[in-house]
């Protein structure tokens, strides 16, 4: 890290001010407001609120529906994270060995990344559409009638698949650059030391990808928890009913559709705590290992 000594004491703060302001306005103030609101019961029709202590939290955590959504969120995040990492890694390893037309391959594999999440969700929904969706047609070939938005499992599967599809390119880019930063000589040394390319991958390439992999793991968990909102929203077509959803979606639903600002705030505070834990874990792990040079 480069250290710069400033002559005056206010100058560094002046340089930092824009960033600090942005963080305060868009993060600390809303977060503080959410924490405050989580202890109050808002009147949905305006006109004041009542302090209720931790009642909102009690309600949330004892609510069967909340527990059900939390469970779905867990499995959803696990599957999305695992498959988007695994598929991206497989594609990156394969693309890394392509010699002819490597660039076109890479662009083809990356460009889903450039699509905005709601658009990706829409494309996904079209793929699963009951009348024109090719995936529904394929399922029909096997005698299965897919009903997105009606059948709970079908909807869940569609959400998971679309979310994975949207995230694979991001992971692919990182994995590919991670693979390419492995020195050629190290791979060649491994080629002389180990005949089996499978074994070579797991004993040399994969451990050397660990820093990238760990970084992506955290990014993907965060993605699955929060950034899949748009995909879920589009798949659900505004009909929450008995459809699967993640915790973040439920925060939105309870707060803005159900007008329960207090309960919704309590839910987002819980989520905030979760993210905090995840971040602490990430920094601890990064400090401890995964730094090679």
């Amino acid at each position: 890290m480069k250290r710069v000594i400033f002559g005056s004491s206010w100058l560094p703060y002046a340089f930092l001010a824009p960033q600090i302001l942005i963080v305060i306005i868009f993060f600390y103030l809303p977060a503080a407001e959410a924490v405050r609101a989580s202890f109050y019961l808002e009147n949905p029709f305006g006109g004041g609120s009542t302090f209720v202590g931790i009642d909102n939290y009690k309600d949330v955590l004892t609510d069967d529906n909340y527990v059900r959504v939390a469970k779905f969120t867990f499995w959803f995040s696990l599957l999305v994270t695992f498959f988007s990492l695994a598929i991206a890694l497989l594609l990156a390893v394969k693309a890394d060995t392509v010699l002819r037309g490597a660039k076109s391959y890479r662009i083809l594999l990356m460009w889903v990344y450039a699509i905005a999440p709601p658009v990706a969700g829409l494309i996904g929904v079209l793929m699963f559409d009951q009348h024109v969706g090719p995936i529904t047609d394929v399922a029909a070939l096997f005698g299965y009638k897919m009903q997105i938005g009606v059948n709970y499992n079908d909807t869940a599967a569609a959400m998971i698949i679309i979310s994975i599809w949207k995230q694979v390119p991001v992971n692919f880019i990182f994995f590919l650059s991670g693979l390419q930063s492995i020195p050629k000589a190290v791979r060649e040394a491994a080629q002389i030391d180990c005949r089996s390319s499978w074994r070579r991958f797991w004993t040399v390439t994969f451990p050397m990808l660990a820093p990238t992999g760990f970084f992506l793991l955290i990014i993907n968990i965060t993605y699955a928890l929060f950034d899949t909102f748009a995909v879920i929203d589009v798949v659900m077509k505004n009909e929450p009913g008995s459809n699967p959803m993640t915790l973040v979606y439920k925060v939105y639903l309870d707060g803005f559709r159900g007008s329960d600002l207090g309960g919704s705030s309590a839910q987002s505070v819980i989520l905030m705590a979760l993210v905090l834990l995840l971040t602490i874990f990430q920094f601890r792990m990064i400090e401890r290992r995964v730094h090679y040079t």
């Binding site: 000589a185 190290v186 002389i192 030391d193 050397m208």
Partner: peptide, 26 residues
């Protein structure tokens, strides 16, 4: 054959012992 590379090409995630033993283990 065994090869010694210009930039050493050691496995950064393995100890010296494992670096040397890797080829034999395989």
């Amino acid at each position: 054959i065994a090869m010694v590379f210009q930039n050493y090409a050691l496995y950064p995630h393995m100890t010296v012992r494992k670096n040397m033993g890797y080829g034999l283990k395989n």
